[in-house]
Amino acid sequence: MIRFSNVTKHYPGQSEALRSLDLYIPPQQMVFVTGRSGAGKSTLLRLIALIETHSRGEVFIDNINIQKVAEKHRYFLRRQIGFIFQDHRLLNDRSVFDNVALPLVISGFDHKEIPRRVQAALDKVGLLSKQKKHPLMLSSGEQQRVGIARAVVNRPPILLADEPTGNLDPDLSIEIMQLFEEFNRIGVTVVIATHEVEMTSRLGHRMIALEDGQQIPFGSDQTGESIVGKLHE
């Protein structure tokens, strides 16, 4: 589903965020990408989401080399991807309903179909009763769930989440991760960047560890080591 071949991402004036990365994520897999901040987790996700473009190498999504797709045609690839931000990035001047409906409006869905889909997505994240509220009236955990509803409302085959539980307490974090597992169970490829190695490694999914823009064996970095050590105890 997602394949990186010798990918380097270079930000002007900075060191390389990803260095000659090779990576393959098969369809319907759930993957956690871990590593310290600056290790390249966010960059990896942003390259997949076509928010940024890589400097060298090749990125394939669904066997399409994204570099060969002109910017004005990339919208089609972007519709295959749901993205969840750490800071939600909801539109605060619009209701929860309108926020979740946005991807459907963008994709030109039938106007009668939209309410049904939005309500199904909000129901899934347990916020059906808050559809008329504005994002700022909700708690941080609820806002994050609105962000998730927005990402899945289009039923994309790929779901990307950048530190989705970064601002949440542990109980809420587990709830959110369970939500992702549910989507994965119905066939969605899920890639989650996180620094919460302890909680996520317990869930038993594939872990990809990054350090200085390169993949390292999971558990060999300091955080991973200590966690794996703890798990062994």
Binding site: Y75, R89, L91, S107
Partner: peptide, 16 residues
Amino acid sequence: LEEIQISRLFGATNAF
């Protein structure tokens, strides 16, 4: 800008 960026991320065309 925020709205435009989010819309682009979710696959809005230039025309949209």
